[in-house]
């Protein structure tokens, strides 16, 4: 999921100083689990805005904020509140914020959160970054531990000289990715492979931004082909 954290409230209120009537848009997925965009956070921000002399015309937790079409349909019931709003505050991630920009082309849209990373939830409201979305997965070669993400240097061929007691030179709180990979490969009986395989430099063209993917086109072509056969 996309991990978000609340922006500094004082700065947020300052940045929105020119607007007075707000609609608060949360998200039931990642932002709710992060505690940044669920119903309680909407109530909390509403109280803070009202204390600052602002008006909140309404609020809603969208099912999936990064899905613009569905969110637009859900928001139809708030037409009146939205008409009275001069700024929509989006309490999800940067993707959710930009869905709102698409839905409200004429209105100001402000993010209340900073988007941090693609995270795994380890415990309630505790998250770890394990995947960098690099576009070229190497987990098959590294025992299922991602060195691109777990190693601060993204080293692909073994630990640097900075390993200390199995931890990273930049923080004793980070276990060395390559010690973890070594242990996993050892358990899997694949140490020989670990020693003999040199991973080539990554093809970073797989992660040049902005990325786009259209799976539908391929499916359409496929089903079109089948129809012809019939």
């Amino acid at each position: 999921m996309i991990i978000t954290k609340k922006k500094d409230r004082k700065k947020l209120l300052e940045s929105m100083g020119r607007y007075n009537r707000f609609f608060l848009l949360g998200c039931s997925e990642c932002a709710t689990l992060c505690g940044t965009g669920g119903q309680p956070e909407i109530e909390e921000l509403k109280t803070e805005l009202e204390a600052a002399g602002k008006t909140v015309t309404g609020g809603f937790v969208a099912k999936t904020g990064c899905q613009a079409l569905g969110t637009k349909v859900e928001l139809k019931q708030f037409k009146e509140a939205l008409d009275q709003t001069d700024c929509v505050i989006v309490m999800s991630c940067g993707a959710g914020t930009q869905s709102a920009v698409e839905i409200f082309p004429e209105k100001a849209v402000y993010p209340s959160n900073d988007s941090l990373f693609l995270g795994n939830m380890t415990r309630l409201q505790m998250f770890d970054e394990r995947c960098s979305l690099c576009g070229e997965c190497v987990l098959d070669l590294t025992g299922g531990v991602c060195p691109v993400t777990a190693c601060p240097k993204g080293i692909l061929n073994g630990p640097c000289g900075g390993t200390k007691d199995g931890h990273c030179e930049i923080s004793a709180e980070i276990p060395c990715a390559w010690v973890r990979i070594y242990d996993r490969m050892n358990k899997l009986g694949r140490l020989e492979e670990f020693g003999q395989t040199t991973l080539a430099a990554k093809d970073w063209s797989a992660s040049i931004k902005p990325r786009k993917l259209n799976v539908r086109e391929q499916k359409d072509k496929k089903s079109g082909g089948e129809e012809k056969k019939k």
Binding site: P152, K153, L156, C160, A201
Partner: peptide, 26 residues
């Protein structure tokens, strides 16, 4: 490969690590 930028005096720098030591030897 090189010490991480966090060890140095420009901690806000973007670390590159496009390749690393083994790959650089190649």
């Amino acid at each position: 490969t090189g010490d991480h930028v966090l060890a140095g005096d420009h901690k806000g720098a973007k670390p590159v690590y496009d390749v690393e030591s083994v790959q650089l030897l190649k």
